[in-house]
Design a protein around this nucleic acid. Structure first.
Lengths: 161, 161
DNA sequence: TTATTTAGGTCAGCCATATTGACTTAATTA
DNA sequence: TAATTAAGTCAATATGGCTGACCTAAATAA
């Protein structure tokens, strides 16, 4: 039966092979975040701070509500992290046209940190990806994209329009 | 200059495109772990328990030391999680030939939970992966593998030999 | 055989990141 | 004017990490 399955669907992957993917995701994601973690530690920041800095850098003038939508954490969780970043002058808060909203942006200090952290991850990805051909790279991106829940696919598109 | 780069290296990816990969990794990894999280919550377990159950299931009779090497956490961190799993009879501890060591294995109850959690993730990966061809899938696995630090590549190989 | 190393455990305290629930303020919109 | 929305805050709780100090028992090296 297993043989028949392999015969009929050449792209079929058995559980054993798929478990390897589970492990690859675990190990690669952990190592992917380890570089920035070391820099953040010196500033007494964590990965949560990195995410905020990343997405504020990505979308200048992002509001609190939008940021909460991207991060999918509670406003209480965001509050602590964001207040630290604001009080230490990595992030600047201004009022929106709708005066209920706030617009977040990186200060020069914030941009510098954002750049330092992203450079590590960009370099790492580029080093890996340069060893593969364009079909593999596009396939890689597409597979990751398809692993995202539909709701969050929208978010990905929104921050990239 | 950027044009020249693109001209000379067709596989060159600019920072903007690489940033998309950073985001894809963040969103996909988060959604990938959200399924099991819901089941674990009912048992008052977290992702740390899942990892222990996963790797004990993966390598029967794994020792504490080996498990610490895979998870890369301190024994104090492992201790709390593992003791819960043992006291709630998901994991069985026996003594190794070297009587200083302990061998961990899943009980029937543990196997059942492991299966329940892994099934969700395997299903998710299979659903995605079945929409791609074998070259894309292999490329995907290889790129993830290359993102792992050398030390941890060894670990991945060891648990898969 | 004694000394050292190794595998594992434990106690205590600390920090980061997340949660829920309840409540407030100010501004916008119906 | 009433309802909704964006944002903030206080308090309590859980999870999952960490460091440091210290312990036991077994295996191995000097």
């Amino acid at each position: 039966m297993a043989d028949l399955n392999n015969l009929l669907s050449p792209f079929f992957l058995n559980d054993k092979e798929i478990r390897k993917v589970i492990e690859l995701l675990f190990f690669s994601y952990r190592d992917f975040t380890s570089g920035p973690d070391k820099i953040l530690e010196k500033l007494n920041f964590g990965r949560a701070h990195h995410r905020v800095i990343y997405f504020v850098g990505k979308k200048n003038h992002i509001t609190i509500k939008e940021l909460l939508g991207v991060l999918q954490i509670t406003k209480q969780s965001l509050s602590r992290v964001l207040n630290q970043l604001v009080s230490e002058k990595f992030i600047l808060v201004s009022t929106g046209t709708d005066k209920r909203t706030k617009k977040l942006s990186l200060t020069e200090k914030g941009k510098k940190l954002e750049n330092e952290l992203s450079t590590i991850q960009i370099k790492k990805i580029r080093e890996v990806i340069n060893r593969f051909d364009v079909e593999n790279i596009n396939g890689f991106k597409q597979i990751l994209y398809e692993m995202i829940e539909d709701n969050n696919k929208k978010t990905f598109q929104e921050i990239n329009d």
